[in-house]
């Protein structure tokens, strides 16, 4: 009996010590970790827009975040967008029903900092809507403008890969052709499916027009040598553009030994862009019909 008590006490003490060490470590590092993740996301975003690390971003370029929510009431569901309005800290909560018809628009006051924080933003919206209505955050898009004109959208998404989810971020032009693709997270096999993060794979999607993307498929064939060089940016810039033009309507070349991963990415990208294109078209129609002025 005495033995058991000492064992219990010692094990408890060691657990407490371990918990203290881990807890302290977490307290000291959590803010830095969050900051790093944010910095990385920002960097990927700017790289997708064509501003590599260190490149100067012109002042005329501005970014607007739009948050999409699924609002459920007793009677049914609708889609809502939280849009920035004007220069101040004003946001507009625009509700659209599932057929794309405008329901209502509510002004919402919150600071830009609050809008960035997911929890604070959702709480704010929930408080405004009242208890009978439930708003569920769906996703967010980023609109980049240059001199007031839209230059690109940044969208993200997750889809099933060969093993677990593949998390991507991409930049799409206003005509929904792809500006750039970045793989943020994946757990594909190293040497096989993990090749999806290589430039030669990602660059195949670059400048693919929306019409070609809608029907894009995967071909099981080796990439032609000259095209591979162009994909790896080993030829002059003009030639890269020439090759891109030549192959823009073609299918995606499968990675050797990883056709499933290739297919997952190409189908995933296709689905994300198509859904996004539909949503933005609906949103734009509503904004135009209701004469809602937005800065983008």
């Amino acid at each position: 009996m005495k033995d058991i008590i000492t064992i219990v006490i010692r094990l408890t003490v060691s657990c407490l010590m371990a918990a203290t060490v881990m807890g302290l470590c977490f307290i000291f590092t959590s803010s830095a970790k969050k900051h790093n993740e944010h910095v990385r996301e920002q960097r990927v975003m700017y790289e997708l827009l064509g501003y590599d690390a260190g490149a100067e971003i012109p002042e005329s370029v501005s970014l607007y975040e739009i948050y999409r929510y699924v609002v459920s009431r007793g009677t049914g569901q609708s889609i809502a967008y939280l849009l920035p309005e004007g220069e101040d800290d004003n946001f507009l909560f625009v509700e659209i029903d599932l057929d794309g018809k405008f329901l209502n628009a509510k002004p919402m006051e919150m600071s830009e900092q609050d809008a960035l924080e997911h929890d604070v933003r959702t709480k704010h919206i929930q408080a405004d809507l009242g208890e009978t209505v439930h708003a569920e955050f769906a996703d967010q898009i980023l609109i980049a403008t240059d001199d007031g004109k839209r230059t690109a959208y940044i969208i993200g998404g997750k889809f099933q890969g060969f093993k677990t989810f593949i998390n991507v971020m991409m930049a799409v032009k206003p005509d929904f052709s792809i500006l750039g693709l970045e793989i943020l997270e994946h757990e594909e096999d190293p040497g096989l499916g993990a090749e999806i993060e290589q430039d030669y794979f990602k660059n195949q999607f670059k400048d693919k027009p929306f019409e070609a993307l809608k029907v894009v498929d995967v071909v099981k064939a080796p990439i032609p040598d000259d095209y591979l060089k162009a994909l790896n940016n080993k030829v002059s810039e003009e030639d890269v553009l020439k090759f891109r033009e030549q192959y823009k309507d073609k299918d995606i070349y499968a990675i050797t030994g990883a056709t499933i991963s290739t297919r997952a990415v190409s189908n995933g990208v296709k689905a994300i862009v198509m859904k996004f294109a539909y949503r933005v078209t609906v949103l734009d129609k509503v904004l135009e019909a209701e004469h809602i002025a937005v800065p983008f």
Partner: peptide
Amino acid sequence: LTIATWVTVIDLVLAAY
């Protein structure tokens, strides 16, 4: 427990700094 603690600490420190 010891190993798990150190793995967590190293993981957190690496992620942060």
